[in-house]
Design a protein around this nucleic acid. Structure first.
Length: 287
DNA sequence: AGTATCCTGGAA
DNA sequence: TTCCAGGATACT
């Protein structure tokens, strides 16, 4: 999934519906995805939901936490009395549990939390709350664009952003997607932000002018805020904590639009690979 | 810096 | 049947 706006969307949903519930039982259907002892979470009450980059942390009231990364196809879907009448987007995600459901948390008050993950790339790690920060993924997370509030990690300021770019002579797109440099940006928003800022994704980061770096910084914030307002991008599998899809995919600028017209004129958007990732750009408006 | 790898399913 | 996918990591 899921980049910062999508993970933050899930976090907000879990904050609203999951916090306060006690975990009554845990059924692990795919042991590989669930690391740690399920017994450590059973009987505990959910205290808080945090997000660091694209990672989620569910804090419990017994000193343990669950660190979660949903990678490309993970879903955390809550079902309870208060969500009974919620319209679920499509049948592909409407039915839980499904054959993509790998962990089932039975909660008190007749509620359930499902972890679905079609491709099984994600993970759930149970560990002491004070050890979460020691996981390399969280420890090495770079500062994050201040898109949605509730900043758990360090906020990425324009000055810091400029410093990161100036110090790197690698291509700008892979750089801004490097979670150790900047947290939360993935392929969709990297593509769209670079288009919006008029910058060729292959440009070496340290060749950008101050003006270009500022334009890119603002574009990153803009496209992510926009996506957050649309409820995230459900290009593949993303759904929020209630199983509903977002709408950003219907408002993307260049991502996934190979062969289509540039949003600004008739130029055809081209696709190529950069750093192993599909890259979309308008060669007329991005230099 | 580029490529393989963990997986599954939808599309070409 | 082959290729591709919002990620991250461990290799060459």
């Amino acid at each position: 999934m899921p980049e910062l706006p999508e993970v933050e969307t899930i976090r907000l949903g879990l904050q609203k519906y999951l916090v306060g519930h006690r975990i009554v039982n845990v059924q692990v259907r795919a042991p590989k995805l669930f690391q740690g002892n399920p017994e450590d979470v059973i009987g505990a009450k959910v205290k808080d939901i945090r997000r660091v980059g694209k990672g989620l942390i569910i804090d419990l009231d017994n000193g343990f936490s669950m660190a979660i990364h949903i990678k490309l196809t993970g879903q955390l879907i809550y079902r309870g009395d208060e969500t009974k009448n919620v319209q679920v987007s499509k049948e592909k995600v409407g039915q839980v549990p499904s054959n993509a459901t790998h962990v089932i948390f039975t909660l008190d008050k007749k509620a359930v939390l499902y972890y679905n993950d079609r491709r099984r790339f994600g993970w759930i790690k149970v560990l002491a709350t004070d050890q979460v920060g020691n996981l390399p993924f969280f420890r090495e997370m770079g500062p994050e664009p201040p898109v949605a509030k509730e900043m758990e990690g360090k906020a990425l300021t324009l000055e810091k952003f400029k410093e990161i770019l100036t110090k790197s002579n690698t291509a700008v797109k892979p750089l801004i997607m490097d979670q150790k440099k900047i947290g939360g940006i993935g392929n969709i928003y990297a593509n769209d932000a670079l288009f919006m800022a008029g910058i060729d994704p292959r440009r070496k980061a340290n060749t950008l002018t101050a003006k270009e770096m500022e334009a890119l910084y603002k574009a990153i914030l803009f496209v992510m805020e926009k996506s957050f307002k649309y409820g995230g991008a459900s290009e593949l599998n993303f759904v929020n904590a209630l199983g509903q899809e977002g709408e950003y995919q219907n408002h993307a600028l260049v991502y996934g639009k190979e062969g289509e017209k540039c949003p600004k004129d008739q130029t055809v958007i081209k696709k190529f690979f950069l750093g192993g990732r599909g890259t979309y750009m308008c060669s007329y408006h991005q230099k």
